[in-house]
């Protein structure tokens, strides 16, 4: 309770992993660690869904619905009747949030 961040959209398919370690390099929250045959998904709950790992995985062993976790942008989009999941309203435009 009081933790909305335990579950997220990160999916990892270790059988596809070719152990290039790119995800470990790009992840800012040490979600993946080195393993023997393939990378290990160590701390899935720490994932912030930035999408860096999925976008840099050459074999699509990682999937995530990436986006910016910004309530300000999402609430504004919802109030304007736009899609809450679009990135359109976040950051930098019209005096955005960050």
């Amino acid at each position: 309770m009081f933790d909305s961040y335990i579950e997220n959209t990160l999916q990892y398919y270790p059988e596809k992993c070719i152990n290039c370690l790119m995800c470990i390099q790009v992840c800012p929250h040490v979600v993946f660690t080195e393993g023997k045959e393939h990378v290990e998904l160590k701390k899935p709950a720490s994932c912030m869904e930035c999408g860096a790992c999925a976008g840099n995985c050459p074999v699509q062993a990682i999937e995530v619905e990436s986006g910016v976790g910004c309530a300000w942008a999402m609430i504004r989009a919802a109030l304007r009747g736009e899609d809450m999941d679009s990135d359109a309203s976040c950051c930098g435009e019209d005096g955005g949030c960050c």
């Binding site: 579950e7 309530a71 949030c97």
Partner: peptide
């Protein structure tokens, strides 16, 4: 709640859950 976007670790799935839970 609106500070989530300024932090370095909140996921979209989590923030969305927060919005529906608490707003």
């Amino acid at each position: 709640l609106n500070f989530t976007g300024c932090t370095t670790y909140t996921s979209r799935a989590g923030v969305k859950k927060e919005i529906f839970r608490y707003v």
